[in-house]
Write a protein that binds this DNA or RNA. Sequence first.
RNA 1: GCGAUCGUAGCUCAGUUGGUUAGAGCGCCGGUUUGUGGUACCGGAGGUCGGGGGUUCGAGCCCCCUCGGUCGCCCCA
Length: 419
Amino acid sequence: MAKTSSNTPPKTPGAIRGTQDIFGPDAEAFAFVTETFERVRKLYRFRRAEMPVFEKTEVFARSIGETTDIVSKEMYSFEDRGGDSLTLRPEFTAGIARAYLTNGWQQHAPLKLATHGPLFRYERPQKGRYRQFHQIDAEIIGASEPQSDVELLAMADQLLRELGITGVTLQLNTLGDADSRDAWRAALVEHFRGVKGELSEDSQERLEKNPLRILDSKDPRDRQFVADAPKIDAFLSDEALAFFEQVTSGLDAAGVAWNRAESLVRGLDYYRHTAFEFVPDEGSAAAAALGSQSTVLGGGRYDGLMESLGGPVTPAVGWAAGIERLAMLVGDKAPDPLEAIVLVENDAGMAAAMQLLSRLRNGGVSADIMATGSPKKRYDKAVKQNPQHILRVDERGYHGMSGEGDNARILAAIEKSSP
RNA sequence: GCGAUCGUAGCUCAGUUGGUUAGAGCGCCGGUUUGUGGUACCGGAGGUCGGGGGUUCGAGCCCCCUCGGUCGCCCCA
């Protein structure tokens, strides 16, 4: 029993900042995305997995890197009653990696996994960015061959096509192996340090904390220095170059269009070789629909992650995509049509109407009932739901159907369960 | 963390240089009409104009603070 200590009525609590209540066309689009993903991942034989939405904080802290802003400011962390620090998952990959190690899933390697669900990041909300958001996710763990990268990207490409999303292109880069990456990074630091005074304030800061990020600076002052910055290609080992060439030739063979993006980077050290994002083409409808947070699907190869979680060296590659962003691009989905509506013209026929309704539904016919409000207005309200057929019930019971088109399924449903 | 912008009915929005009891459409409820595939009309309920303070004879409107939404920056695993 709720008690109020004063005469003031209780105030309705508001929703948490950055959370969403998804309903109507948006909810239909959301479901279309997850249903299409489930269908496509089965075509590629990815196995479904479910992970907890929270983990020990160290799972994410160690995978993401203890020092970054991400860990200190962007995660939903809290202490449980036992004093352990826990964190709502901000990504799928770390939790999947932990599950792989703690459950002995090495026995299934190479393991193709798919999942989807909510993720949490403590950020200021903006278009396409929420504190609780949702992703679909696909990973291949325990496979070091470039064919895995190709397979994963082919699946992503097919998914986007089956969602009917156009105007989005795969942007592809390689970060090389660990040695290539380190050498490139050193050269970039040297290059930008030489012109430090002319960089934007943000990029001067990045020079110390995360120099690779200068490459995707939005500040026009940085643009010329980014343009003539050293390229990864000059630092690739023979093995890294061969790997990348196998990825690109595999994509060509699979018919996946791609574009080389030399400035596409990953901030975290465990990423190796392939890095990619599907991004709207400039001026496309997709770009207009998404605003500034426009990457639709992104991922890469993270061969160094398992070690940071205390596991054996385990190559892996994966991607994730924001369901909300995909849903913004799929357009309105017409809801499934209502096949039959039972119109109760007189409440004396209510029992007959309920029996009819359950026969319809048991027979696989989508059906609803209109039996409330002014009896004189029920007809109009029934019509407004745009049913394919209206079945009338009054004190005599069911007495007739109107509507155009095929009603065989409805008749069958009524007959089949009749005595 | 920083910046811009917006908060009026359940929803979408009007609201004049500050001026009486704050309006419309949709939705909801009721009635009349119609009488069976989206009829027309009449009526009703519903708002402390996000909240607090200030200026003023008088504030939805002007000023300050605050809360919330939206968009962007930073960050982007």
